[in-house]
């Protein structure tokens, strides 16, 4: 076990190297969560729709993604995409993570949509709004609010899962830790340091989500 002083020393020495990978990890996470949320919303709407084929597509997608390991998905998508359309490394990784988290986000959205009292849809319909207008204006805004805590959780998972992008040669946080430890054979030090980076981002993010929840609590019953 490396000493605290050694860890501190190494932390500050390697600090400049960490900025870029940190940024990349952050970009990967944000891109994958945003794209994943769009996929998730679309799939959730398919699942709650009356459109049978849509439901089947949504269910198969969720089953396949949840039923296979993320690292396998990343490799399949990365090498698969790479051969078909060259999206570049970043977008191949981001898209793989997005397609992965999209399945989980779809389930979050579906749960939130279904948790909204059915009287809300009936009220919208009885006022002469169409079901899609009611979904967009009445159900989704309320469902989104309820989705924030589990989405925050998913964001944290995506952040940590982005470390798997190291295996497709992305120079993000975990990749740097691997390289530093390989260069120095001081593995424990660098993996502890990188763990600290992840931990701090997650803590900051948890705080932000918590604040958002509080701010959005207005108008709650």
């Amino acid at each position: 076990m490396p000493s605290i002083s050694h860890l501190t020393e190494e932390f500050f020495r390697t600090l400049p190297f960490f900025w870029k990978p940190l940024l990349l990890t952050f970009e990967l996470t944000v891109a994958s969560v945003i794209v994943g949320s769009i996929i998730g919303l679309f799939v959730a709407l398919l699942k709650v729709s009356k459109f049978k084929l849509g439901q089947i597509i949504a269910n198969v997608y969720i089953m396949v993604i949840r039923g296979t390991p993320l690292i396998v998905q990343i490799f399949v998508l990365y090498f698969g995409f790479y051969k078909m359309i060259d999206l570049g490394q970043f977008w191949s990784a981001a898209l793989a993570l997005a397609i992965h988290s999209g399945a989980y986000i779809a389930e979050i959205f579906r749960g939130s949509i279904q948790s909204i009292d059915k009287g809300q849809m009936e009220a919208g319909l009885s006022l002469g709004m169409s079901s899609s207008q009611t979904m967009r204006r009445i159900i989704l805004p309320q469902a989104m609010k309820r989705s924030i805590p589990p989405l925050g959780n998913q964001f944290i998972l995506s952040l940590k899962e982005s470390s798997l992008a190291a295996f497709i040669a992305m120079d993000e946080l975990f990749s740097l830790a691997r390289r530093l430890s390989a260069e120095t054979f001081d593995e424990m030090t660098y993996f502890l340091i990188v763990a600290l980076y992840y931990l701090v981002i997650v803590m900051i993010f948890t705080y932000v989500v918590h604040r958002m929840e509080k701010r959005l609590a207005k108008g709650d019953v």
Partner: peptide, 17 residues
């Protein structure tokens, strides 16, 4: 339904508005 309004037992107001 634009011609036929309805009022519900549990009001069903939109809580976010």
């Amino acid at each position: 339904r634009q011609k036929v309004g309805m009022v519900f037992q549990h009001f069903n107001l939109f809580p976010h508005k």
